[in-house]
Design a protein around this nucleic acid. Structure first.
Length: 310
DNA sequence: ATGCTAACACAGGGCCGCTA
DNA sequence: TAGCGGCCCTGTGTTAGCAT
């Protein structure tokens, strides 16, 4: 035990207590016995007893009620002192830990347009809260342009969907795996069902997101289910797809889901789980394979907690 | 079984004197 | 004046014996 001396609180005269005595006192309080405390911290029982006696002499008050052949009970004064002692021991413990260097700098973050509206504001809020010394510059784009910019080092990282393509210059850190869901107008025949199959969904006209990669992902879900949907419209905007569905122009399948099941024009939507095993859409943070910024790790932790909190 | 006291051992630090 | 060695004091630990 380090022999650090310091004045104890509330005494006119300088009184010196050391950490060893406090440690033994707290151990005795915790275990309710000098013998058990001695066993726990690997010293002899008299050493515990001596430390307690020294503290009682210093403070001029009884810390324990001794019960022969039973153990020790904290007095009211002992209880208060044990709390003070514990907080001092914890403070001393913190002093021995190396000071953590706060990561700081500017993170140039790319993000896929379709992911931005749902998560970027929350990500910025959480980053400001947890890592105030990190500034974030935002770059919006599609997967192809984001990938290119990360590879060229123009941005530090990009939040995007996993293409499943080999990119030798990039590392894809998994952030979340989003399950697809069916999007129906409120008055659709399937809107009362707890879940719908892709085959049932394919009986209605489909409104398909036609963004690169996303379009292929959603079509692959139907292909895997062995059904061919009738695509009514192909649209680039998720919000437009939602509005079209809500107004009865078809049904859709999406992965990103706004908190509110209402469209811009106030119409109600119904979201349904898709029956059976369906491939989830992986959200990843793509970063350069070499020379990744030190700002990536804190952002990745925050991104996981926001996008995939479970 | 548990706690307390007494006696003793050991280690580390401070003080002092000697020497180069 | 700085370095070194010896002595002493203090703090911490142990064992042994006794009390409850």
């Amino acid at each position: 035990m380090e022999n650090i001396h310091f004045p104890f609180i509330g005494f006119k005269k300088l009184i010196q207590i050391n950490l060893r005595q406090l440690e033994y006192f707290v151990a005795a309080a915790r275990h309710g016995s000098t013998a058990r405390a001695a066993l726990a911290i690997n010293v002899s029982q008299p050493s515990i007893s001596k430390a307690i006696a020294d503290l009682e002499a210093q403070w001029g008050e009884k810390l324990f009620v001794r019960k022969h052949a039973v153990g020790l009970d904290l007095t009211a004064a002992g209880l208060a002192r044990s709390r003070e002692a514990l907080s001092l021991l914890e403070a001393a413990q913190r002093l021995q830990e190396p000071r953590k260097q706060a990561v700081s700098g500017t993170l140039r973050l790319g993000f896929l347009s379709t992911l931005g509206a749902l998560w970027i504001p929350q990500l910025l809020t959480q980053m400001q809260k947890r890592h105030p010394s990190i500034d974030i510059e935002l770059v919006e784009g599609d997967i192809a342009s984001l990938t290119r910019q990360v590879e060229r080092g123009e941005i530090h990282a990009a939040l995007q969907y996993d293409l499943g393509l080999a990119r030798p210059l990039l590392t894809m850190h998994p952030v979340a795996a989003l399950p697809p869901y069916a999007l129906l107008p409120a008055r659709h025949a399937l809107s009362a069902a707890p879940s719908v199959s892709l085959a049932e969904l394919a009986q209605s006209p489909l409104l398909l997101i036609n963004l690169p990669q996303s379009r292929e992902y959603f079509l692959s879900l139907f292909r895997e289910a062995g059904v061919v949907p009738t695509v009514n419209y192909e649209l680039a905007s998720i919000e437009l797809v939602r509005s079209m569905v809500a107004n009865g122009h078809g049904v859709s399948v999406l992965t990103t889901r706004p908190v509110v099941d209402r469209t811009h024009d106030g119409k109600r939507l119904v979201c349904k789980r898709i029956k059976g095993r369906v491939a989830k859409q992986a959200v990843v943070l793509s970063v350069p394979r070499s020379n990744a910024s030190a700002l990536i790790a804190p952002f990745l932790t925050v991104a996981k907690s926001v996008i995939a909190p479970d």
